[in-house]
Design a protein around this nucleic acid. Structure first.
Length: 549
RNA sequence: GGGCGCGUAGCUCAAUUGGCAGAGCAACUGACUCUUAAUCAGUAGGUUGAAGGUUCGAUUCCUUCCGCGCUCACCA
């Protein structure tokens, strides 16, 4: 492919920006912060003033540490018991957190501290904390961080609380918190200011904890089976291993264009050639394509390769990994998905070939179900599409494209929306599987499968093509597709063919979309709810009004 | 990229088929030593996303632009 000029945000920094010695992002951020402050200037200035008064009381504005005896979740785990259990002797604790609610009543007051997703009430009485301590309490705002020393007790209404004897200021919130009852609901603000979203919305925090558990579970399962974790290039001279449009970037010293990887696949298989029989990588892929509720330009993928097995071997393994992950993340096998449920127990998984799925889900409005022989020739596939389109939604059909590609489109149109429970679809057309090994008895079909759940594709695996001659032929076929106008078709990768030429053992390989699996496990119906900082357009600034076309 | 919808105070939302831009929370001042959406009294806070147009008069109607959401297409 010809060198592409570096464009816009995908490219390196512009000359002037580099000359000035800062990168675009931080420069931009400074401007945004400045504007936010302009809007909230009154509150910001007032709180800076309060911070000075706090310093005047002898408390550092930004102290370096606070020694605590318990986290707030630990307090709840250990002391959520009757009041008598905390008297004689009293339980002295030191805890810290962010103030999420505060109530002042003359010479005493209450506040709720939040830490690690849990809240605990504190009771601050002038008699107990002294003149200076109470002056400090009166200078506190919602959002501040404080530490307290005191003893546990239950209030008249029975709420576990800390009777504060010493109040330590830790950090000031200079910006107003979202409304305390409705919280932060504006989705744009939630994504742009995820830090606020995280401490205002406990369920958001929970999703990302579950995401962490998911990744942990997959690592643990693979490690236990002797896989080793590796890291392969994210910047690649040839973006291979998948069918997608890449991002382009540029290395200045070498003066070369590089692609952000669309998949780690070809590098991981080089490692299998190198004798790393079981490898995996969990990392980001980048695809320069549309953004939707199921697509983010960067997304996380687990890929693993196992030598001396085939697509059946990794099919079984993947099923086990996912069923185990569901258990580790949610504590059970059944997860909520909108108005229904998905059961990840292995007994509930179904398997069918792509051709069986098309036949099985063939819409009644499109007449008689196809027979297996209908998938055999270009002409019979063409008439299948015509029958399908006559009674159903439209499948785009290009008579010049390979029949296998048409069959894959037909499958998506006919079956995908039905695949709610975990289902393995296997045997994919060779035309859409340039890296998979063909079936021994049917060269038009490959030993490849994908897993569907919740109407989404979440995993893809196959017997790895390790015949370098065949691989070269497949790449050449892809180049022909590229000539035909498909700029997503796979590029030639000579070094990869050279690697295969050194002999790669038979192997099965798998990719699992972590974001989508996380969506399914957490009942999140947009990928942005499982990505901490989803890609957004930059915020508009007044200094740099958006140019009009 | 196409279609539909939304954008009003820091946050959550009103504003009568075009007629003085409002409330709650947050903030500020004061009262209150077991409150918990604390309460009570008062104060302040806005270029209604931006620009243009129609009109005596626009948050409201029209056009363009910006941002976001949903959806379709492409993709995982």
């Amino acid at each position: 492919m010809a060198k592409r000029p570096a464009r816009g945000g995908n490219a390196g920094f512009s000359q002037p920006a580099r000359a000035l010695g800062y990168n675009r992002t931080s420069h931009f951020r400074q401007r945004v912060v400045k504007e936010t402050l302009a809007l909230d200037e009154n509150i910001y200035q007032l709180r800076l003033e309060k911070l000075k008064q706090i310093e005047a009381l002898g408390q550092p504005a930004y102290p370096t540490k606070f020694d605590f005896t318990h986290t707030l979740p630990q307090i709840w785990a250990e002391y959520d018991k009757p009041a008598e259990a905390m008297e004689n002797p009293r339980v002295e604790v030191r805890v810290a957190g962010r103030i999420m609610a505060i109530r002042l009543m003359g010479k005493a007051g209450f506040a709720h501290l939040q830490q690690n997703g849990k809240q605990l009430q504190i009771y601050v009485k002038k008699d107990a904390v002294g003149e200076k301590g109470f002056e400090l309490y009166k200078l506190l705002d919602l959002g501040d961080h404080v530490g307290v020393k005191g003893y546990l007790f239950r209030t008249r209404t029975g709420e576990l609380s800390v009777h504060v004897e010493e109040l330590t200021f830790l950090s000031k919130d200079l910006l107003p918190l979202p409304e305390k009852w409705h919280g932060l609901t504006d989705v744009e603000l939630r994504y742009r200011q995820r830090y606020v979203d995280l401490f205002m919305n406990p369920e958001v925090r929970e999703v990302f904890i579950q995401r962490s558990k998911l990744v942990q579970s997959l690592r643990r399962s693979l490690d236990a089976r002797g896989f080793i974790e590796v890291e392969t290039p994210m910047m690649q001279p040839i973006a291979g291993g998948a069918v997608a449009r890449p991002f382009v970037t540029h290395h200045n010293t070498l003066d070369m264009d590089l692609f952000l990887r669309i998949a780690p696949e070809l590098y991981l298989k080089r490692l299998v050639v190198g004798g790393l029989d079981r490898v995996y990588e969990i990392n980001r892929n980048f695809r320069n394509e549309g953004i939707s509720t199921r697509h983010n330009p960067e997304f996380t993928m687990l890929e693993f390769y196992q030598a001396y097995t085939d697509y059946r071997g990794v099919m079984d393994l993947t099923q086990q990994l996912i069923a185990q992950a569901a258990q580790d993340v949610t504590g059970g096998t059944v997860t909520k998905w909108g108005d229904s449920e998905i059961d990840w127990a292995e007994a509930n998984w179904r398997r069918m070939t792509m051709r069986e799925a098309i036949i099985h889900y063939w819409p009644e409005t499109s007449g008689t179900k196809p027979a297996l022989s209908d998938f055999a020739s270009h002409d019979s596939v063409k008439s299948l599409v015509q029958r399908f389109n006559a009674g159903h939604a439209h499948v785009a059909y290009d008579p010049k494209e390979p029949a296998g590609k048409t069959i894959a489109n037909l499958f998506e149109a006919a079956a995908e929306s039905h695949l709610q429970q975990p289902t393995i679809i296997y045997e994919y057309p060779t035309a859409v599987s340039p890296l998979s090994k063909q079936k021994a008895d049917e060269p038009d079909w490959t030993e490849r499968w994908e897993i569907y759940a919740g109407q989404m594709e979440i995993s893809n695996g196959f017997s790895e093509l390790n015949d370098p001659v065949d691989q070269r032929r497949r790449f050449e076929g892809q180049l022909a597709e590229r000539e035909r106008g498909d700029d997503e078709a796979h590029q030639m990768d000579e070094d990869y063919i050279r690697a295969l030429s050194y002999s790669m053992p038979p192997a099965g390989g798998v990719g699992i979309g972590i974001d989508r699996l996380c969506m399914l496990f957490t009942d999140s119906h947009t990928i942005r709810d499982v990505i901490l900082f989803p890609l957004m357009r930059p915020e508009k600034t007044q200094e740099e009004p958006t140019e009009e076309k």
